[in-house]
Computed example of a mutant assay.
Amino acid sequence: MRALLLVSLLLMGCTTRAQTPKATVRDFYHFYLTDFVSDGNENPLTSAKMQQYVAKETLTRLKAIQDIEEQEIVEADYFTYCQDYAAEWIPALEVGTARDDAGGKVLDVWLGIEGGKKLKLRDYLRQEDGNWKIYRVVDVSNGFEQNIFDDKAISAAKAHAATLSKN
């Protein structure tokens, strides 16, 4: 009987419950906004925390775009649509309820910004390696999306960067 109890406890300890989409987004933004306001992390795209919360394809694309000289695909931070962020705005973070969307989930996110205002984003998630991960972020407040999935724009930016290095 003790052996059965021990095996049951071991199995329960080894199985991890995947986070809900809402918990994933909430935890991501708490981590990311705190990291964003600090100067300690030069390239957050390669951090283990980013890999925990963000889809591999999204990180790969953002890194490739970041490496293009004078690119205009990502004009502000992809996850906040801001150039900078203040620590006092972090407590205003709100995450909405997850809704089904094309085999994944979509959630609205409200970030605190200057003047007590809020910026509304929409985060799209899909399951990857058994976990919910963010793969797309849209600025709903301004009706804008930094289209990191536009292969033609990325190719054009690379071609433009190549002409800069020749000069």
Rank of each mutant, 00 (worst) to 15 (best):
K166T: 07
F149A: 14
R26P: 00
F28A: 01
V25A: 03
Y81I: 02
A157Y: 13
Y29T: 02
Y32E: 06
R61D: 10
A87W: 09
T24C: 05
I68L: 04
P44R: 15
L4N: 14
A156R: 15
A48S: 14
V109R: 01
L9S: 08
K105P: 07
Q66F: 00
Q71T: 08
L33Y: 05
D129P: 00
V137E: 02
V54L: 10
W89D: 09
D67Y: 02
F144K: 08
R26M: 03
A92F: 10
S155P: 00
G143R: 06
L5C: 04
D67K: 13
I148F: 11
G130I: 01
L111A: 11
I90P: 00
N142K: 07
E57M: 12
G104H: 11
A3Y: 08
N167Q: 08
L6W: 10
I154R: 13
V74N: 03
R61Y: 09
R136Y: 02
Y124I: 00
N147V: 05
S38R: 14
Q127W: 01
L93F: 00
K133C: 03
E88T: 04
L93M: 00
A18N: 03
C82D: 07
V37P: 04
Q146I: 08
V7L: 15
H160C: 04
Q71H: 13
Y29K: 02
P44C: 01
E88L: 04
P44K: 11
G103H: 09
K105F: 10
Y81A: 04
I68D: 09
Y53F: 15
A76T: 11
E88M: 04
A48E: 15
Q51D: 09
F149P: 03
D151V: 14
D67E: 14
D139K: 02
L121I: 09
Q52T: 15
T163V: 05
M50F: 14
T58L: 04
C82G: 04
G104T: 06
F36R: 15
K152P: 05
L5R: 14
E128T: 05
E128H: 03
A161I: 07
M50C: 03
C82M: 12
T97E: 13
R136S: 02
V37R: 12
I90H: 00
R2D: 14
E57K: 15
R122H: 04
H160F: 11
E145Q: 11
W110I: 01
I113Y: 01
S8A: 15
A3G: 02
G104V: 08
K63P: 01
Y78C: 00
N41I: 15
L107V: 08
P21A: 09
P21H: 06
E114A: 15
K117E: 13
A102R: 14
T34Q: 09
A157E: 15
T97F: 04
R17W: 06
D108C: 09
A55W: 05
F149M: 12
D27E: 10
C14H: 03
I148S: 12
N167W: 03
A76N: 06
N131T: 02
G115I: 04
W132E: 01
L11D: 05
G112H: 00
M50K: 00
I134R: 01
A159Q: 14
Q52P: 07
T163C: 02
I73E: 07
G103F: 08
F144M: 04
W132R: 00
E75T: 13
I73F: 09
L10Y: 13
T46D: 12
Q127H: 01
A102Y: 12
I65S: 11
V25L: 00
